[in-house]
């Protein structure tokens, strides 16, 4: 069975997902992890700003805004 992988950008507000992988170079991974975005974490999308604006996610009761380009490199599975 072929399953398309989802990224953070595919999620709609109120959807929850588990982070599977970070796709990017060393710098990107380090930068993202230092804000607590780690494999295995559950994230919920709070808001999507219009016209390609950032996505606001909630993790451990804490909100973070992340640009779509970066969000598209965070692979998730819907919970």
């Amino acid at each position: 069975m072929i399953r398309l992988e989802l990224t953070l950008t595919n999620l709609q507000p109120k959807q929850k997902a588990r982070i599977l992988r970070l796709e990017g170079g060393f710098g990107f991974q380090k930068n993202v992890r230092s804000r607590g975005i780690l494999e295995g974490k559950i994230v919920e999308v709070i808001a999507r700003q219009p016209v390609g604006g950032p996505i606001v996610i909630s993790m451990d009761k804490r909100n973070t805004a992340i640009g779509r380009g970066m969000a598209s490199r965070i692979i998730v599975a819907v919970e």
Partner: peptide, 10 residues
């Protein structure tokens, strides 16, 4: 022009 990556404190 890098993207926004910002913590939103309570």
């Amino acid at each position: 022009s890098p993207e926004l990556f910002l913590d939103i404190p309570p």
